[in-house]
């Protein structure tokens, strides 16, 4: 990698990360608006998440007397992790940091962010934070094997654990990509996206009711710019998960070329796919009630089994 190529990559990375940062609240707004419309409400504005984040940034924060530096570091760390992950994922072109776009690293970056979020939830000593943390880890434990296995299923088919490679390979092989294994994997990840984005029926992102909340509980003690960063990071994570799912399993439009036209087409495709999934998420959220916490294992186990079958099917059919 020459020096100028390196500079160019860095520049590209900055652009992509910036793009994701900018787009993430919009997706959140889109889902909220969609839900509101479907419920025949006016709902908040499409841009409301941006307003919120900006507003929180400009406010001062109130910090609990029991917290330590963990709470203070966490928002930045979580935000950093999410932003880094944004640079790893190929969206509509190759990922800027494709040489390191390892899927295990990708997932574990989320893990790092989650660990700190959970620690921050425990830090204040509040029962709400503890509860949120506790539940968050439970969901994480349940999600993890399935998610990894779904990703591994894709990796095994593509012959690489590099996300960029995988997606390039899938998109270049056209309709041949659609094997039973692929479909099983897609079904598996559909379940996991719901869980990872913290949406109904797993978590309810809209409420602070202690019976239902998971993620919000951990953020309860946050205010001001910390809260802004945390919310923003959550939005980024949601977008990344959606992007990961659609790019892995509906890989068209992701281009390897640097020509402007394919890139523009790719961008268009990408936006459409993301908004499509977002819409689906919103619809599911309207139709499904929140499932009981201890029903979740079955939910997750099905994802795991789908992923498992995906690999087996792949090997047997091939």
């Amino acid at each position: 990698m020459g020096f100028f190529e390196g500079l160019a990559r860095i520049g590209f990375a900055i652009i992509q990360i910036g793009f994701v940062l900018a787009l993430a609240p919009l997706v959140q707004g889109f889902i909220k608006t969609l839900k509101a419309r479907r419920q025949f409400r006016l709902g908040p504005a499409l841009w409301q998440p941006y307003y919120d984040i900006l507003k929180y940034f400009s406010r001062g924060e109130v910090v609990s007397e029991h917290t330590s530096w963990i709470s203070r570091v966490t928002p930045y760390l979580v935000f950093g992790c999410m932003a880094a992950a944004a640079g790893l994922l190929p969206l509509f072109t190759q990922a800027p940091l494709a040489f390191a776009a390892d899927l295990i690293f990708f997932v574990y970056l989320f893990g790092l962010a989650r660990v700190f979020t959970v620690l921050a939830g425990l830090d204040s000593g509040s029962a709400f934070g503890g509860m949120g943390s506790s539940r968050e880890m439970m969901v994480a434990v349940l999600v993890e094997p399935g998610l990894m296995l779904v990703l591994f299923a894709a990796a095994l088919r593509a012959g690489s654990t590099n996300l960029s490679d995988i997606i390039t390979r899938f998109s270049s092989s056209g309709f041949n990509t659609f094997t039973p294994s692929h479909l099983l994997g897609a079904a598996g990840i559909a379940i996991l996206v719901v869980a990872e984005t913290g949406r109904l029926p797993v978590d309810n992102p809209d409420t602070h009711l202690e019976l239902t909340m998971i993620h919000e509980g951990m953020l309860l003690e946050y205010s001001g710019r910390s809260l802004a960063l945390m919310l923003w990071a959550t939005n980024i994570k949601q977008l990344l998960i959606i992007s990961l799912a659609v790019n892995l399993f509906v890989p068209w439009g992701v281009t390897a070329s640097l020509e402007p036209v394919p890139i523009l087409v790719g961008l268009l495709f990408y936006l459409l796919k993301v908004l499509g999934v977002a819409a689906a998420l919103g619809l599911v959220e309207m139709l499904r009630p929140k499932v009981r916490l201890f029903k979740l294992p079955v939910f997750m186990l099905s994802a795991f089994i789908l992923a498992f079958l995906a690999v087996i099917a792949d090997n047997v059919v091939r």
């Binding site: 940034f57 406010r59 109130v62 910090v63 917290t67 935000f79 932003a83 880094a84 001001g224 710019r225």
Partner: peptide
């Protein structure tokens, strides 16, 4: 690196941080 970026963004968007210490809810 991005932690620092995050701090920078926060600084950029919100100016100097004002922090008050209070009880946990």
């Amino acid at each position: 690196v991005l932690i620092i970026v995050g701090w920078g963004i926060a600084r950029l968007l919100g100016g100097k941080n004002r922090r008050a210490i209070d009880e946990t809810w």
